[in-house]
Amino acid sequence: MELGKFLTAPEYGFVIVTYRDIFQSAALEKSRFGEEYRKLSAVIKMDSGDIKKLGVVEGDTVVVKNACGKVVVRVEESGYDVPHQGVAYMPNSPWSNSLVSADTGGTGVPKYKMIKVMVSNARGEAITGMM
């Protein structure tokens, strides 16, 4: 019996910054409900050191959550030349927006590029479906 699967996966704090991706934008124009859009949206790009720390490899899923919501998305290595431990990137999509706070601090502008979350190994859990 694998004892590890009964233990809670450790959680680590991250700040998510959202970005635009032309391939994801093109997929959105074609179908918001299609597999291609889901595949290109439900992604988190992380520093290689953070991926190792979480005990996952590229292509595995992780749980990303905070008080606003929880999504399971696929991990990708960012490939950026400057290390960025603790900062992760997600394409702007319903998956990232599930984690954005409704509280705008009186500005009317959500913090789309400053989303504080906890991330853990999803241990094979499937990517979250949207509608």
Binding site: R32, C68, N97
Partner: peptide
């Protein structure tokens, strides 16, 4: 957020996708 609106007309947009989900 304040639930002040009681009906909405959305034109060429998808706020369910582009706004925070809880809003």
């Amino acid at each position: 957020n304040t639930k002040k609106t009681d009906a909405a007309l959305i034109i060429g947009s998808d706020p369910m996708s582009c706004l925070p989900r809880s809003t």
